[in-house]
Amino acid sequence: MTTVFYARVSTADQNLDHQITQAKQTGFEFDEVVSDHGVSGVSTRLSERPEGKRLFDMLRHGDTLVVRWVDRLGRNYDDVTDTMRLLLRKGVIIKTVINRMTFDGSTNDPMQGAVRDALIAFMAAMAQAETETRKAAQKAGIEAARGKADKYRGRKPTYSREQFKLVQDMLSGSSTISEISKSTGLSRQTIYRIKDKPEASEKALTMWGM
């Protein structure tokens, strides 16, 4: 039985090492890492990505697929639900790093199956909704900045949106500030700022269109 960690890195600001480090710090061990770089989770289905295709060929019955969250598989509701159900029917176990959730298609209990499918649908919908919300916020932020070009926006954030999310995820766990700093490459001061003022930190990213 093989355990594969799959990561999707869609922008230059995102970092594969961050996703791998977070998975290992959460207690996951895997035999192989498969990753797609510069690929959108909105417009490109997993089966259409270079390494995504290979992932489908690799995984066999009894294997385990580990992902940071379902949004790494895609940010489109239909794509995520179709992909997860296809893999589960194939006998692949899917686990998420965040919240350590496990999806197993081997159950014969209709009630358990219904609960599992409902949870998959909910998570897929959240992934798509998060993308749409972020796009709307970015658009609003960009328009506001353009309309008030003479207004000072403050310092440009020294962290990317991916780093911001990773810091929040690790803060919600048992990671220390020093561990987070080492994993993300951010200063302790920046991490404390995100910890103490998450809304302001998020707003800064939006205002700069990040």
Rank of each mutant, 00 (worst) to 15 (best):
T2C: 09
V4I: 13
F5M: 15
Y6Q: 11
T11Q: 08
T11W: 03
Q14R: 06
H18I: 13
H18V: 10
I20E: 14
T21I: 05
Q22P: 00
A23M: 07
Q25R: 13
T26E: 14
F30L: 04
F30K: 07
D31Y: 06
E32V: 09
E32T: 13
V33M: 15
V33F: 13
V33S: 15
H37S: 02
G38V: 02
V39I: 14
V39G: 07
V39M: 12
V42D: 12
V42E: 12
R45S: 09
S47T: 03
E51H: 14
F56G: 03
L59V: 04
L59F: 02
R60N: 15
R60E: 15
L65F: 07
V67F: 13
G74W: 06
G74A: 10
R75H: 06
Y77R: 09
D79A: 12
T81V: 15
L86H: 05
L88P: 01
R89K: 11
G91D: 05
V92Q: 02
K95Q: 14
N99M: 07
S106M: 08
S106D: 12
Q112C: 11
G113Q: 12
A114L: 15
V115G: 01
A118G: 11
L119K: 14
I120P: 03
A121W: 00
F122C: 11
M123Y: 07
M123S: 04
M123R: 05
A125T: 09
A125H: 09
M126W: 07
M126T: 08
A127E: 06
Q128V: 00
A129C: 08
E130Q: 13
T133P: 10
T133D: 15
R134Q: 05
A136G: 12
A136I: 10
A137I: 03
Q138K: 10
A140T: 02
I142D: 15
A144G: 09
R146H: 04
Y152Q: 08
R155F: 08
T158D: 14
R161K: 09
R161S: 14
Q163A: 13
K165N: 15
K165G: 07
S172G: 14
S175P: 00
I177A: 14
K182S: 12
L186S: 07
T190P: 09
I191M: 14
Y192H: 07
D196E: 07
E199D: 11
E199K: 10
A200W: 00
S201Y: 00
L205T: 01
M207I: 05
W208L: 13
W208P: 11
M210V: 08
